[in-house]
Design a protein around this nucleic acid. Sequence first.
DNA 1: GTCACTGCAAATAATTTGCAAAGCA
DNA 2: TGCTTTGCAAATTATTTGCAGTGAC
Lengths: 148, 148
Amino acid sequence: MMKPVPQKEIQHRLKQLSEACKKSGMRMTHQRMEIFREVASTAEHPNADTIFHRVRERLPSVSHDTVYRTLASLEELGLVSRVDPVKGGARYDANCDKHHHYICTQCGSITDIYMQNEPSLPEGIENLGDVESLHLQVRGICHNCKTN
Amino acid sequence: MMKPVPQKEIQHRLKQLSEACKKSGMRMTHQRMEIFREVASTAEHPNADTIFHRVRERLPSVSHDTVYRTLASLEELGLVSRVDPVKGGARYDANCDKHHHYICTQCGSITDIYMQNEPSLPEGIENLGDVESLHLQVRGICHNCKTN
DNA sequence: GTCACTGCAAATAATTTGCAAAGCA
DNA sequence: TGCTTTGCAAATTATTTGCAGTGAC
């Protein structure tokens, strides 16, 4: 269905995690590693509960709140980003390339999209404040939902 | 602080509500009118709870769940739109002009922004599915937070 | 050894639902 | 009158927090 993340990319991301932990004084725990691996291994933008259940298969003692706390730290490190879909809880993404999202309003699937031309900043935005980031969501009904 | 919505515009929006109710078979109740008026009277994108408290001042018996249900119907009618901020619950907006949002990641304030050039659709989006709408969020720290 | 991290349990926030009564068309 | 809508209460869902024990460095 969705293109899997290549092994090489997963390894690269895990290496970044290890470096980021070292640099920031965070500890590289088994849980943190497995939770990040789970997000880094898929492009489907799982939510916290999905991540919890998948990690649990390998690490049966992991708890729900550790997943939330870990995702929050990973977000602070800039290793995962949170996507707020139209409905339902937050979804997570370890793709650090500049990209945007296509969200199916029917099934809720989230797909990374890349722009040829990044949207320009609206004129006068500097009157409002700093610009840290720019997020574009394209919403619609995906082909999969259309045909089913 | 934020530019107030002109009386004329509020009246226009209320008229649209009345027409939309007639057309769709929805009934024009006192609660629905007041809840919509509350959203239509401000540009600050209040959340459900804020709307609840404000409406309550004029209509003391209104309940929390009626506010949620009403906002959901108004959204279906296309009279209000929901904005999902970075953190916290959904926020509501009765501005029907095509616009986007600046969100302060510190205080959570949401400001409408207008683009000179709408962002173009990414090439190949038609391979994913239909495009219903396009939402741009610009995030940063607003001047107000910067100076305080 | 120290301090960050974890699991547990419980709290909180945000939203939804079932149902009988009330009210608009 | 008939069907939508409301208020109440309770249930759910999503997420957060306090705390004592555990583990990485």
